[in-house]
Design a protein around this nucleic acid. Structure first.
Lengths: 117, 117
DNA sequence: TCGATGTGCAACCCTGGAGTTGCATTCAAT
DNA sequence: ATTGAATGCAACTCCAGGGTTGCACATCGA
């Protein structure tokens, strides 16, 4: 379970890093809209070179947000929702945890105040 | 509504950028665990200087993930869950959208295959 | 076979951001 | 009033990563 937690942490880290870049988010939007697209075609729609797009796709692939399959001489990429969904859940759980802790702290503070007077 | 969307996009951007840094996530963990803590005390628990911590807190504050209130000569920071929660929802909706689009594309592809034979 | 198109690889530039140090300033407490 | 502790501000270093160019390699089509 400790191992599992570490893996989850690393997966979340790679997803957050991948999503922090606006160009990569734009890439994901294009892929989600068009289905399977090649790096060359993606580069035509963006103000950056094909190689820049390829580098971004490598990062996105490492995070599990996209995957590419070879078809003849080209490589077609598509979005993968699993990693994104997992990160969304991690984030929601974290927010809930913060709320729980804040409520606890508030309760303790009020009890202390009650005792002090 | 276009404006609202743009605002949401900017808020999500700042949260994602803020969360992409491991030191900032560690700061959030410490703040969530301890309630209200000052930058000086946070720096004691991390392998970086107080000024580095302050810079991180500025980023986290701009993203709405923490807020600080002045008490005498010190500034105490605490986590704020609203922005995190909003980003979690944005992410979950995005994942759902991807699934919807992938299902549509798959359906179209199968129809095309059916027609071709 | 040969030209055209798409991908892979490597070297390089350059800026932003994470971190540091040093000092000034503000406030509490004796 | 003076000392100690906390914050605020500014200048500086350093390097990871986003971007580029150039060329070699693979594959399709005529």
């Amino acid at each position: 379970m400790t191992d599992e937690r570490r893996d989850v942490g690393e997966e979340v880290d790679s997803v957050l890093v991948a999503l922090a870049d606006p160009t990569r988010r734009q890439l994901l939007d294009l892929l989600a809209a068009q289905g399977e697209v090649t790096a060359t075609r993606l580069a035509e729609r963006l103000p950056v070179s094909r190689q820049a797009v390829v580098k971004h796709l490598v990062v996105l692939d490492a995070a599990g947000l996209v995957s590419g399959r070879r078809v003849g001489r080209e490589v077609r990429y598509a979005v993968r929702s699993a990693a994104l969904d997992a990160t969304a859940r991690w984030m929601a759980a974290l927010a809930a945890d913060w709320d729980r802790r804040l409520a606890d702290i508030k309760r303790v503070a009020e009890a202390a105040e009650r005792d002090s007077r």
